[in-house]
Amino acid sequence: MIEIFSYAFFQNALIASFLASIACGIIGSIIVVKRMSLITGSISHSAFGGLGLSYFLGFPALLGAVFFSLISASFIALIRKKALNKMDVLLSALWAIGMSLGLIFIFLTPGYSGDLFTYLFGNILLINSFDLILVFILDLIIVLVSIVFFNSFLTVIFDEEYAETKNMPVTLIYLILFSLIALTIVLLIKIVGIVLLIALLSLPAATAQLFTKTLKKMMIFASIITLISALSGVMLAFLFNFPPGPIIVLITAIFYLAGIAIKSVK
């Protein structure tokens, strides 16, 4: 049991869990309080188009994902105010177009497409040193920008109309926020995959919201829940030879249900 800690892949998985938890707690809390699951889903599925394109052109896959997710995040931030009534349709379209592009690019690429499954459902046990460096850089950007912009994000997502009357650059702030969401998504693709990452961005934060009064505390608590879920998920996956992504997601779901149960008993 102890010897697994000496395996490089296992150490990588633990470090990745730690790094991902911080980004997840911060960005997930914002997604939950502002109810932006659909936006998050659209950005993550559009990233699949980028993965496919990278795959087709022979680039590192996550590069394309960064590119596509940032473009779709910016697109959403810029049209958000003008297309308020049509947002629902536009987001669903973005979601489906991203997936379609990804599948077509992968289909066009000769050879084995086994990696496809990894991008859809992730596998934290397969993270290599290159991925880890990328995850570290993304994490650093997300944490630093979130700290600098914390008061701006809080003001704008709490009461956008008021922020506008105070002449804050609301659209620019949303652009920065959505870009951080895009980077968090890319960071999570290797870990839980495109399809499941929405769970890591919503369930721990929703659990934390039940017990905290401020956004800052919610972010910290959500990070801790994500970390515990990820670590125990990695252990269970290794011991029982399960795919880690789904196990991690199920653990976050158990935390959420337990949180609701505790809250309703009180």
Partner: peptide, 11 residues
């Protein structure tokens, strides 16, 4: 405190 964010991108 939010009203003190007037004209600011961040602070």
């Amino acid at each position: 405190l939010m009203s003190r964010m007037q004209n600011k991108l961040f602070k």
